[in-house]
Design a protein around this nucleic acid. Sequence first.
DNA 1: TCCTTGCATGTCACTTAGCGCCATGGTGTC
DNA 2: GACACCATGGCGCTAAGTGACATGCAAGGA
Lengths: 218, 218
Amino acid sequence: MDGTTADKRRGMSDLRRHRLRLEISREASRLFWEQGVAATTGDQIARAVGLSTRTLWRHFRNKESCAEPVLLRGVEWETSMLRDWPRHVSLEDHFTSHVRHYTLTATRTDHLDDLLAVQMSVLARTEPAIRAAWLMACDQTQRELAEIIAARVDLPADGLLVRMHAAAASAVIRAHSEYIGAALLTGADPLQFADAPRRIARAVHAATGGAVGGVPAA
Amino acid sequence: MDGTTADKRRGMSDLRRHRLRLEISREASRLFWEQGVAATTGDQIARAVGLSTRTLWRHFRNKESCAEPVLLRGVEWETSMLRDWPRHVSLEDHFTSHVRHYTLTATRTDHLDDLLAVQMSVLARTEPAIRAAWLMACDQTQRELAEIIAARVDLPADGLLVRMHAAAASAVIRAHSEYIGAALLTGADPLQFADAPRRIARAVHAATGGAVGGVPAA
DNA sequence: TCCTTGCATGTCACTTAGCGCCATGGTGTC
DNA sequence: GACACCATGGCGCTAAGTGACATGCAAGGA
């Protein structure tokens, strides 16, 4: 599934860069959660990963953005789902099957990442720095969503309509993520959100005025 | 309209605090625009306003957030419009009349603030720090929107449905703001966006699945 | 009127975020 | 083996942001 493709080209491959950023983000998020953002120094994060502080700042523009990769994985779930969404399948059906597939194939690391993501999204409620990182991650998601939608409806990704739909869809996903995350961290039963995919799919469908989510030629 | 209410109570009134933050934000935004964010120091901003650096950091948690009040004013336009939205009037009608009223009563300062807001939203496209501030401002807007919508549909503001609608509405408004701002700064004719209020009102109506924007009892 | 209390601001010292610069080492190509 | 490229580390510096303490201003009470 995640076999490291042999990268023969020059420079650090995007994959390796991505992996390293995620690794850093994991440690940073853990520290943020355990001892707070303010009390966590760049040196601590760097040492936890086994890097020099200088290298840390080469990979992240500031402390708060260290949380972004973990936060992104929290919604990457939804975007990756949308990415390979067959044209002739409704969003609702595809979403539910995708969730089923995820729960079957998810590794231990995946679950740990999910936990970290939830923790960060909760931390975002009180820590402005993390909130900014969360919003930046969602913004990133929104731009990817715009690409996906653009390809679907065959319109330019930087057009107003596509951007509106992407914004609305991503906002709906974000609202759900925050809501569920908050509920889970206060001890809610995960099974309570079993029908979340269906609800999210419908909400996305509704928020985009029916443009995203249905079957093209019904 | 904005007569300074006599504040006899102890402590700095919210109004004064708000005004000072806006004043700081104006100077900060101007400097950000003129010489870039990285080249602008906290000392420069403080000196431009006539404050000590220490006091600057008492009013803003970091440099980037100095842009928030100006950015907020860019969308405050929409939220203040929604705030006094009569129940028996459609969003579209209210929006257009509100815009007409604004263009008649706006002061020179208002227009300068609008310009600054547009400049910042454009700067947000390239400067991650400003982008974070922009997203934080929109997030703030979204929370105010949730209050407004909650009062409208008579549901708790922290419920999932209200938050979803607020998120979708605010996302749509944001997408429009970014789009129009970018167009204006590249020399587009402002008259070209004369029907923007109507389009935004309709988009909000659509994005909230019809829950926000129509006349309650048609 | 004087004293007190509360609060915003200023000054100084300090930690640390974050970056420019240069050296080093590891990896791929000729 | 020589060379080029690039990620990393180390050092030093500027600037972001904070804690502690002093000052000054306004309101209110005796």
